[in-house]
């Protein structure tokens, strides 16, 4: 059985003030195998974050269900950890203090908290910076802390919402390679939201392409590029093919958006 099983998922938001209901995600079905790296790609506003937050247990479901290892999701749990786009680190805590946060919340009992935190900090390559505060770090370093904090609680599933979205192109590429290195060692199931096509292909075993109005899954594409991966695959024939296919999807979305605007 798959590790994550999403069935007929629908999420409605009530618009503030008016009583209008607006469907952000509808009829989404998806299975993710244990250890799989799944990227979710789509134009902005198509419900990627909503879907991910639903798996995290941070938004409530209107229809359908999400199961993880056969257990229904009805709130956050120690089997999942989230890396958010905005750094979302506690600014008054040091790097180590931040990495310890999740462990404290889950009353972690696997030995010394400091030890565990330092281990994760070294894993993401920030060993020398454990006493720094977030405002002393670059954007890329802050996201490494976020990843360390999520990995520290040893979740089954790692949920990432455009974690490199605010970084420049070069840092982003480095972080992608780094993330794969870490993921290959930690062997976690990963759900990774992005709107960057190359990033989506580079990381994925499986790409979920989403469309809008309401957010739905347009296609699920398997990626068979060999691992471990490095920048060289960006020039491979298969990568180009996938890129073309994803471009076509997103272009379709764009033109349907323009149509809506022209009508309105």
């Amino acid at each position: 059985m798959a590790q994550i099983e999403i069935r007929d998922l629908g999420i409605d938001y009530r618009k503030p003030k008016s009583n209008e209901v607006f469907s952000a995600v509808d009829s989404v079905a998806l299975s993710v195998e244990k250890g799989e790296f799944v990227t979710i790609v789509g134009s902005s506003g198509c419900g990627k974050s909503t879907l991910l937050m639903a798996v995290a247990g941070l938004v409530s479901l209107t229809r359908g269900s999400i199961e993880i290892d056969g257990k229904r999701v009805d709130g956050p749990g120690p089997d999942r950890a989230v890396v958010f786009q905005e750094a979302s680190l506690l600014p008054w805590r040091s790097v180590r203090g931040n990495v310890k946060f999740g462990l404290e919340m889950q009353r972690w009992s696997g030995g010394d908290l400091n030890e565990r935190a330092m281990q994760m900090i070294r894993l993401v390559g920030l060993g020398r910076f454990s006493d720094y505060h977030p405002h002393q770090l670059s954007g890329g370093m802050r996201q490494r802390v976020n990843i360390a904090r999520a990995l520290a609680v040893d979740p089954e599933v790692l949920l990432m919402d455009e974690p490199f979205g605010a970084l420049d192109a070069q840092t982003r590429e480095i972080m992608g390679t780094e993330l794969l290195r870490i993921w290959e060692r930690a062997k976690k199931t990963a759900l990774f939201v992005t709107h960057d096509i190359d990033e989506a292909i580079f990381l994925a075993d499986k790409i979920v392409v989403m469309g809008r109005n309401p957010g739905h899954i347009k296609e699920v594409i398997k990626v068979d590029l060999p691992r471990p991966r490095n920048e060289a695959i960006l020039d491979s024939e298969e990568f180009h093919e996938l890129r073309k296919r994803l471009r076509a999807h997103l272009a379709e979305d764009m033109s349907s958006m323009q149509l809506v605007q022209e009508v309105a």
Binding site: A56, G57, P76, V82, F84, L90, F101
Partner: peptide, 10 residues
């Protein structure tokens, strides 16, 4: 955002 991140860790 901080409150939400905290919630995600339980």
């Amino acid at each position: 955002d901080l409150a939400r991140a905290a919630r995600s860790f339980g």
